[in-house]
Design a protein around this nucleic acid. Structure first.
Length: 671
DNA sequence: CACTAAACTTAGCAATCCGAGC
DNA sequence: GCTCGGATTGCTAAGTTTAGTG
């Protein structure tokens, strides 16, 4: 198929083209959206309305995709921004290729205006300097003592290093925990000489307090350092960043996210982790796998050392990897979120969620049907999916017992995690959830559900022990396979992304009051954001200084109120004065007093809004959803629509991460 | 199909930074 | 200039999903 489109004004033609194509090939539509969204204001919302692909039963049976080999689409635009869009595996005559704008280079490279690589290929050229290793251990000064059983004991360097890890944590509650102490002691002994091992047989006889004091003094000293010294450290860090913090990927210099190797220390998992206190060992060059281009300058290992391996795999995005010793998992050094490779993926994630939007109704109807299935497996799948959709639960992979904290997600819920209330507080069929999720954050919620769901849950729980799986015929793999059949690229987490983003969009619509001033509008934004955070259960520990800071803010408000009262009094008397005198000067005074009152009113309002916002945010973390779940184009569009500076919503880092969205979304963007 | 390894995203907390108010 | 406290950044653990294997 060859299609040539010559629009007169680029704005209106794209959707029409998309419409026509959509009847043939979904993939192409996606690419066109991509295209449409950069060549002119994104008009994705104008895409054909759904039913084409999903809603109509007729379309349903048809394969979503047809072989791409036949497709060769070429768009030629007359406008200067001409770009080509072609199907991945076909060549387009070289002559038609227009040079990308040169010299726009590094400053702000708009990777989103470029063609994407074929599936699987992550880069063509990659060069970097390798990782920065943790600084070597510096033995304690002679005068800092360790005591065993009341007596001074000089430790070998290795044993001492591990001891310092413990000493540095002495104030933490977890050094009192049995598991932590047991794990620590076991691993510490492995680092001891045989004499040390035979002497040090009990952790409770170890006295780290002197060491601990020394470290406290050290960190105090660090705070007290002179400006020059601090400046020097800062410069050293900048040098390190400059040298190791960037790589070259396909002609562009890109920021690396974590170029420093994690230093050794004691592992402290989240929650009740069975491995807490274990020694996280020092990573050496011999542990490191380097990934880069064959034809790049390969990073040199530190003198006297070798890399474990150097490979050239452009099917992956990481630059460096090593295996960590606590869980035996692999750790990676990868690029910053502002990089092309992360940004594209992020963008794609939201596009997948938007595709779900088009077929979510159908999927919902489907799982509601499945609640009635005669197959247990299907019913369980359908109820689980309902939870994932309605409550934004995570998928819930099974975990190896004893390796990690006991936490669950949807598929791994156990009978003990829910309670069924046929009636509760005047509501029917209430399910009470109470479990620890990711990071051992508690999920607690009472949710009225459909009668069918309730009955199914009763069925699933029959003859089971509290510690049995609620969905015993289901796991994430089964669920995701099913989802894949419902929509290409659909997995459990897409529901979280979709529901988060659609909630933000809908809440913004509902909460934004056109007459509000900017701070009040931002409060509305934060409230919409908060609704999402609550949905996703993004909690935080109330800041330690919360109460105090609230009090401070309140006193500021009180002060401002007084100030306002004063200003009003002054205005009043000025007015009275002006009435008597009737001269220019007193009129001017009235004006300026009026202005002052207004200014103070605004300040007061701002403070009050701030107080409300903070109070409502006490235990809610907004960052996670903002960064990972909310399509940034929704926020950008909202800002444009209401004239809110984007800086009020996204800080510098966030603006870098979302540069693509800030550049392409217009005020009419719809998720 | 079950199992595991690998790759990549998502997560909360602690350390650090930085600017407003003294 | 200095200090306090909120904002930002860094850190790395803990998830999800995919790919590979027998």
């Amino acid at each position: 198929m060859l299609l040539i489109l010559i629009p007169t004004s680029s704005d209106c033609k794209i959707p029409i083209l998309a419409w026509k194509l959509s009847q043939f090939d979904i993939e192409i539509v996606v690419e066109l959206c991509f295209f449409a969204s950069f060549c002119s204001p994104p008009r994705i919302k104008d895409e054909p309305d759904d039913d084409g692909f999903y809603a109509s039963p007729k379309e349903d049976s048809k394969p979503l995709k047809r072989p791409r080999e036949d497709d060769d689409i070429l768009l030629i635009l007359q406008d200067s921004k001409a770009k080509k869009v072609k199907s991945k595996d076909k060549k387009v005559p070289e002559a038609d290729k227009r040079k990308k704008p040169k010299k726009e280079e590094e400053q702000k490279w708009k990777w989103w205006e470029e063609e994407r690589y074929p599936e699987g290929i992550k880069w063509k050229f990659l060069e970097h300097k390798g990782p920065v290793f943790a600084p070597p251990y510096e033995p304690l000064p002679e005068n800092v003592k360790f005591y065993y059983d009341g007596k001074v004991m000089k430790l070998s360097t290795k044993a001492e290093e591990v001891a310092t890890f413990f000493a540095k944590m002495l104030d933490h509650e977890y050094t009192t925990k049995e598991i932590f102490r047991k794990n620590f002691f076991k691993d510490w002994r492995k680092e001891m000489t045989s004499e040390e091992k035979s002497t040090i047989t009990s952790l409770s006889k170890c006295d780290f307090t002197h060491m601990s004091q020394y470290f406290k003094a050290q960190s105090e000293a660090r705070k007290q350092m002179s400006k020059e010294e601090k400046q020097k450290i800062k410069e050293e860090n900048e040098r390190l960043l400059k040298e190791y913090g960037y790589c070259v990927m396909d002609n562009h210099k890109e920021r690396i996210a974590n170029f420093k190797i994690e230093p050794p220390g004691l592992f402290r998992g989240r929650g009740n982790h069975p491995k807490m206190g274990m020694l996280k060992r020092r990573i050496m060059p011999e542990d490191i796998i380097i990934n880069c281009s064959k034809d790049s300058k390969i990073p040199a290992p530190p003198p006297g050392h070798k890399w474990k391996e150097v490979r050239h795999d452009n099917k992956v995005t990481w630059l460096v990897s090593w295996t960590e010793n606590i869980q035996g998992s692999i750790k990676y050094i990868m690029l910053n979120p502002s990089s092309r490779i992360k940004g594209e993926k992020d963008w794609q994630k939201y596009e997948t969620a938007r595709r779900l939007k088009k077929c979510v109704d159908k999927i919902r109807n489907q799982y509601r049907e499945d609640w009635k299935s005669k197959e247990m497996k299907v019913r369980q799948r359908a109820v689980a999916l309902y939870f994932i959709d309605k409550l934004a639960l995570r998928a819930g992979n099974e975990k190896e017992e004893g390796e990690t904290a006991d936490t669950v997600g949807c598929c791994s819920l156990r009978v003990e995690h829910i309670k069924l209330h046929p009636e509760l507080d005047g509501q029917e069929y209430v399910v009470e959830f109470d479990f620890l999720g990711k990071d051992s954050i508690r999920y607690y919620n009472k949710v009225p559900v459909e009668k069918r769901v309730f009955k199914n849950l009763q069925l699933f729980m029959e003859n089971k022990q509290p510690e049995d799986d609620l969905f015993d015929r289901l796991n994430t793999s089964i669920l995701n396979k099913h989802l894949q059949d419902l929509m290409e690229g659909l997995t459990a987490k897409v529901f979280r992304t979709y529901n988060a983003s659609i909630t933000l969009q809908q809440q913004l619509k509902e909460l934004t009051n056109p007459d509000d001033n900017i701070p009040a509008k931002i409060l509305s934004y934060n409230r919409a954001n908060r609704a999402v955070a609550i949905l996703c259960n993004h909690q935080r520990a109330p800041p330690k200084t919360f109460e105090k800071s609230m009090m401070n803010l309140q006193s500021k408000i009180d002060a401002k109120k007084e100030q306002l009262a004063d200003a009003r009094r002054e205005l009043k008397s000025a007015k009275a004065d002006a009435k008597v005198r009737r001269d220019e000067k007193s009129k001017k005074t009235v004006e300026s007093k009026k202005k002052a009152v207004q200014r103070i009113e605004e300040q007061l309002m701002k403070l009050e809004v701030q107080a409300t916002d903070r109070e409502e945010n006490k235990q809610i973390a907004l960052g996670t959803s903002k960064l990972n779940y909310l399509d940034p184009r929704i926020s950008v569009a909202w800002c444009k629509k209401w004239g809110i500076p984007i800086e009020k919503i996204y800080n510098k880092t966030q603006r870098e991460k979302f540069a693509w969205a800030i550049d392409m979304a217009e005020e009419d963007y719809e998720f």
